[in-house]
Design a protein around this nucleic acid. Structure first.
Lengths: 231, 231
DNA sequence: TGAAAATCTATCCACTGTCAAGATGCTGCG
DNA sequence: CGCAGCATCTTGACAGTGGATAGATTTTCA
């Protein structure tokens, strides 16, 4: 594992390259990432990375894949460790927390101009992370469809009778999950790019995410469902 | 294009440069933007842009500033043109619509690594766009706080410092506005980067934004409050 | 042992930002 | 009216960087 100097074969150059990418992003930003710079950090010649990653986008795609797997693990851990709190709130805050803890990976993971989206490994990792969110939303919605009090009837029929307004049940599920993803993704990206007011970012990721989610939900329902204009 | 050959002085090189940046971003992505490439498009020599913008970040900051002003105008027009619908929904969909209509500007506007954030012109333009959202949220919340019948203090010019200290006034307002921004910003960025399911993006920006907002609000309230606010 | 993988050295080429010095057009002032 | 000064733009050159490639070298493994 440790990189011994002087060895001709690095041992695990791909891992060393990914580590180098992380350092470069942290210290100089993502635009400073080049094959040569990463190779320099990893202590190999500038032509070595091409053998493993091909080009710069290939390197960043591998880096993004690693990030997606880390995110998936984080979300799973958060969901399984959730106690009384709402699973959706827990997983949402975990998303924001991940972005703040691993800004280097997060800055690359979902960026079209830095990843090769048709790469099957990357696509699989990305969808795997989203699947956790999708499953969580499904559980939340099914739990409430079941009546709110008893949550043991989890495997009931998917197509409920509630789907009059948003289409099929699966469609509404996708909508809800995408909306939740958008919210926490927006929080994370705006935060990392320094666009949020300091009164917001002074708090912890957990407090901020929870406050934004609940406040927004109230406001949205007041605005949309509450029909303030007529009554 | 549209550059008159032969004239020594361009006439309006800054505008031509911004137009060139837009074309480059559209055709080759933001990473292809360089001073020389933009100068080539604008039909001037490679050293001309430095006189106006200094360096690449300066050029992109000016481009981002232009985008913020465009966004502010869009949001204002949408808010003023809103009829029966909720002002928050209208302005939120307008945000997403703007991002899809002007992806080149949107890709730069809020990115820390492409803009000089201390630039006063840029900062002012950025805060001006957010102010429209903030005012809209203020109106929505004040309208509801008043009970829906009385619209006494409607102008809401700068800030009503009545209940700042409690945290339920200006603080909650900021939370709500930031949450709303995060949601629509997340939708826009995820969409533009191709991360959203095609079943979502098949629809129009307006339908998608509305569906995500309402569905998410319901789900969030179900998850957070335990039971939705049924009267 | 021999083939394949991994890595290195060396080189080529395109491109960028920046600087210096000169050319051109506009503008205000005597 | 004429000219000086300034902003604008051009040309040319330079140093640095990055990606790509070819061939040599070392290591691993069957």
């Amino acid at each position: 594992m440790s990189v011994e100097q002087g060895r001709y074969h690095h041992g695990d150059l791909p891992a060393a390259m990914l580590s180098a990418v992380r350092e470069i992003v942290r210290e100089q930003g993502i635009n400073a990432v080049t094959l040569r710079a990463a190779a320099r950090r990893a202590g190999v010649s500038h032509a070595a990375p091409a053998h493993h990653f091909g080009d710069k986008v290939g390197l960043l795609t591998a880096f993004a894949t690693e990030g997606c797997e880390m995110l998936r693990a984080r979300l799973l851990a958060a969901r399984d460790g959730a106690g009384e709190e709402s699973a959706l709130l827990v997983i949402g805050t975990a998303y924001v927390r991940f972005a703040l803890d691993e800004p280097e990976h997060f800055a690359v993971m979902f960026r079209a101009d830095y990843t090769r989206r048709e790469d099957p490994t990357y696509r699989q990792a990305r969808e795997g992370a989203f699947a956790v969110l999708l499953d969580t939303v499904r559980e939340v919605r099914e739990g409430h469809q079941a009546g709110g009090a008893a949550g043991d009837d989890a495997d009931g029929d998917r197509e409920a009778e509630q789907d009059v307004e948003q289409g099929t049940g699966e469609d509404a599920l996708l909508c809800a999950a995408t909306g939740a993803w958008s919210l926490v993704h927006g929080i994370a990206t705006l935060w990392l790019d320094g666009n949020l007011d300091t009164r917001i970012t002074d708090r912890s990721a957990e407090d901020t995410a929870a406050a934004l989610m609940t406040t927004l939900a109230e406001t949205l329902l007041e605005a949309a469902g509450g029909a303030p204009t007529s009554q």
